[in-house]
Amino acid sequence: MTPEETLEILKNKFPDSEFTYDNELPVDAYIIVNPKDLLDVCFFLRDEENLQFDTLMNLSGVDDNNATKVKDEEGNEKLEGRTLSVYYHLHSMKFDHKFYLKVSLPIEKPEVESVESVWKCADWHEREAYDMFGIIFLNHPNLIRILLPYDWEDGSYPLRKDFETPEFYNGMKIPY
């Protein structure tokens, strides 16, 4: 089943929701999903008879770094509209077809439902995305740092594009 066909099924199933077909050529196409529908969509994709996306191949956080300059009323320039994205790469062992989802979250409030209850393997991937990008996965059973040390500074997320190497870590000077 091609992504286009899957998209049609989704559109019929969730008439209220928005799905954007983002055919970022050259290679992979994505369906952009509204974050609030994500969990329902994922459950549907997993359990639907002729879809059965039983595996989450990969879950990846991305800092889109797509802020645009806008002027507010007083004429000051401001960066706005920057988003963090989460990419979900689904795959069905049974039918051998793939489907890629993407949700975009505003950087001020990067919160999305955890899909850990759908696919167990999302657990560590989500922790990693939290660790590196600060994306909050709601209802995740154990959302703590995974690759970075537990005492890493709160609110400091290294894979964000605006991350700057701190000068000190636990009292040690970093660029020695």
């Binding site: 191949m57 990969n58 990419y87 790469h89």
Partner: peptide
């Protein structure tokens, strides 16, 4: 490479290695 993205996966000795 042109603007775009790819998820490619390969059968490594340990399992599926994916590059996004």
């Amino acid at each position: 490479p042109p603007k775009g993205s790819i998820y490619a996966r390969f059968e490594n000795p340990k399992g599926e290695l994916g590059y996004f």
